[in-house]
């Protein structure tokens, strides 16, 4: 049985908000009988985009995490619902029945991803339905995927075994795997949100003129063990990415030409730009 999955590539998301707007366009003012009641004009973010800045000027990066209903295979909302108000379809899609779910606010509270929204006026919980009504009418993909300008969102309908392999091949992750809800929304390059970096700029002095120290060799040590190395670029910039936040002390060793090695220590809390390092 082929089932739907959504894959979101963080490295490709540039916050166009076309996923959010597609959902607003599809659901505001439209009741899709049996699938969803209309979404409120304001306040709901069935695709909810979180901005993540890392580092400090001038070494910063910026990424976006778009969260939505994970269509979990072991969905807490299904367990929390009474009279089968939330169902799991054979194609993997989770649907909150707009009639049966009336008054069941606990469905909102049950979602650990904050992806179910409470419709105050209609007195119902709501979430993104994977555009199931469109897929059932023969559409080949949900609207968030077809309007995404960068190809960051892809919807695939495949066997679970294929998906398992894809997760390995493409290094996909899910949000909060420890919860074991088995989400069907996967992320590529999620480290850009969850991990952090140490960066710096190597400079040198040439006849009294400050210059970028190009191609300096920078080594990263943790607990006395070398865990990574890189070279500074044409501007003297270097960066070690993919480090755990709050992961304690690191030592850096910087070698430039035949000069004495420079050393730096960092107690890493979050992404940190060390500034200029005279080598």
């Amino acid at each position: 049985m082929k089932k739907w999955n959504l894959i979101i590539d963080i490295a490709k998301c540039h916050n166009s908000n076309n996923c959010f707007l597609s959902v607003a366009d599809e659901y505001i003012g439209n009741d899709h009988k049996g699938y969803s009641a209309s979404m409120p004009l304001h306040g709901h973010h069935w695709f909810n985009i979180h901005r993540k800045e890392r580092g400090q000027a001038p070494m910063v990066d910026l990424n976006y995490l778009s969260t939505t209903c994970n269509h979990c295979d072991d969905a807490p909302c299904i367990k929390a619902a009474k009279n089968e108000a939330v169902i799991k379809r054979e194609d993997g899609i989770v649907i909150i029945d707009p009639e049966k779910s009336k008054g069941q606010k606990q469905i909102v509270d049950a979602c650990p991803y904050d992806s179910v929204w409470w419709n105050e006026e209609k007195n119902i919980p709501q979430a993104w339905t994977f555009d199931a009504h469109l897929l059932d009418s023969g559409w080949s993909e949900p609207r968030c995927a077809s309007t995404c300008p960068t190809g960051a969102i892809k919807a695939v309908k495949i066997e679970d075994s294929e998906m398992t392999q894809k997760v390995i091949d493409e290094e996909l992750q899910v949000l909060q795997p420890k919860l074991k809800t088995k989400p069907r929304v996967y992320y590529k390059n999620l480290d850009l949100i969850t991990k952090c970096f140490i960066g710096g700029t190597t400079v040198t002095t040439d006849n009294g003129v400050e210059e970028c120290a190009v191609n300096a060799s920078v080594l990263l040590y943790k607990d006395g063990e070398k865990i990574s190395e890189t070279n500074s670029d044409d501007f003297g910039d270097f960066k070690f990415d993919g480090l755990e936040p709050d992961s304690g002390n690191y030592e850096l060793e910087i070698l430039y030409q035949n000069n004495d090695a420079q050393k730096k220590s960092v107690n890493l809390k979050d992404s940190e730009y060390l500034g200029l390092i005279n080598v």
Partner: peptide, 14 residues
């Protein structure tokens, strides 16, 4: 104009 654009979190803040 009360449009959906106003709900974009990087456009306006409620």
């Amino acid at each position: 104009k009360d449009s959906s654009v106003n709900d974009i979190k990087d456009h306006r803040i409620n």
